[in-house]
């Protein structure tokens, strides 16, 4: 079983299609369309990989990145945006993002990053007990 992924983007057509493509590659993927929904899902059903757009109405990607890194530092966050500048990239990487992609993204590069993020999680899990690290994840076992 692949990693659990949460996609956050206000472009509904985009996230749904991307989610479908990731699912076809054996990744458990769900999609939400705004920041609050994403945070709620992170609370209720935390993913391992979070893919976030930067520019969204209401809550933007940077805020989501900050909040999720505070509450769930173990989640690997990938930024996927059409609006990124070099400063945004530096800021996101500084805030703890795992990777940063500019749209349009090549699916293979995205998947490579997802796998790398997943492997990082797995190697972290081996060092720490999963239940200590992710108390909310409940029954999930790597």
């Amino acid at each position: 079983m692949g990693p659990r992924i949460l996609l956050v983007d206000d472009e509904q057509e985009f996230v749904q299609t991307l989610a479908e493509r990731l699912q076809m590659r054996d990744m458990e993927t769900s999609a939400v369309f705004d920041g609050p929904a994403a945070l709620a899902q992170v609370q209720s059903h935390p993913p391992q990989i979070l893919i976030v757009d930067l520019k969204m109405p209401g809550m933007d990607g940077i805020q989501i990145l900050k909040q999720v890194k505070q509450t769930h530092p173990g989640i690997q966050i990938i930024i996927l945006t059409g609006h990124g500048s070099e400063q945004d990239k530096i800021l996101c990487m500084h805030l703890g993002a795992f990777a940063y992609f500019q749209k349009p993204v090549d699916i293979d590069r995205l998947i490579t990053a997802i796998r790398q993020g997943y492997e990082t999680i797995l190697s972290n899990e081996q060092k720490t007990a999963p239940c200590d690290r992710y108390p909310e994840t409940g029954s999930w076992q790597p």
Binding site: E13, T17, R21, M24, R25, G82, Q102, K103, V105
Partner: peptide
């Protein structure tokens, strides 16, 4: 910036078509 978003929709939709044709 504005073009990048719809461009990636085209990208992903087409990618999905290819996926469906190859992986489906």
């Amino acid at each position: 910036h504005e073009i990048n978003n719809p461009l990636d929709i085209i990208n992903q939709k087409t990618g999905l078509i290819i996926d469906l044709l190859t992986l489906g």
